[in-house]
Write a protein that binds this DNA or RNA. Structure first.
Lengths: 139, 139
DNA sequence: TATGCACCCTGTAGCAACTACAGGGTCAAG
DNA sequence: CTTGACCCTGTAGTTGCTACAGGGTGCATA
């Protein structure tokens, strides 16, 4: 723990598996506070920035939108507040994910059906094209 | 079948469950050919446009990208060609869908785990926030 | 000391696939 | 002849970045 650490943007990016451009973009959209600057105008980050960016990245990995993460960060900063709002955000996100999951499941099955019918003859009697065409209409 | 039909853009949009703006956008990106115009400069569509737009919408519903649909349309127009290319596009799309499906399945489970731990006390000991935070670090 | 190279800066444009105006014109009904 | 629903073009916004262009900085090496 000898890490007194002003990190450059490249260090921070590497530490969080983020691209430098993305870090700058998080600053622009105010997910990440603007850090101090060096004499040569380089951004200098500390442990708190690292913590916050890690939070953001983990949230993104879990599929939260940037707006949801903004809310979560605001809630996390207000430690006396009830956790219920956090729970609400997470649950509504889960509901969305589950909706998308069931859509994709149906979709995959439809695709498998369509593909299964392909005898790979000529396009003229391709079942896939036919399945995409308005139902039953020829040429 | 008394439908000799020049449709307006609104009719076409309604018939395919598409927004008028989207129809115009498909024209701009050359998925849909520019139709004839009325005296008052209104777009006039016929049965072929309806057929093509239905194809496009069905493809989009099945999650094909606009580029993939463009390819599929080109293949469908060339009826002597082998159906193998169509099959390839569909299979690679299915593979993508299945990849996304497994990602989302994992994601949903992680979210359920995180949410399950929430006792809904104060944020200070919120498990959800903790799960998002860099591992094990307090405040 | 020069010079190369990796890194940093700002700002803008692009991606997918639309959506949402603003600021007009057209057309049929009443 | 006016109202209202529709249509036109063109541009900007959405999400979450990514990819430059055209510079400046900082450190090591010759």
């Amino acid at each position: 723990m000898a890490n007194a650490s002003p990190m450059t943007i490249g260090d921070l990016a590497a530490a969080t598996d983020t691209s430098v451009e993305t870090v700058r973009w998080y600053e622009k959209v105010k997910l990440l506070p603007a850090p101090a600057r060096s004499a040569g105008n380089y951004r200098l980050y500390g442990r708190e920035h690292l913590r916050r960016l890690s939070f953001i990245r983990r949230g993104r990995d879990l599929g939260f939108t940037v707006d949801q993460i903004r809310e979560l960060l605001a809630l996390a900063d207000d430690r006396d507040r009830s956790c219920a709002e956090v729970d609400t955000i997470a649950r509504s996100h889960l509901a969305q994910v589950e909706r998308k999951l069931s859509d994709l499941t149906r979709l995959a099955q439809e695709l498998r059906d369509v593909i299964g019918q392909c005898g790979c003859g000529s396009v003229a009697d391709c079942r896939i094209i036919e399945a995409l065409s308005p139902h039953g209409e020829p040429s």
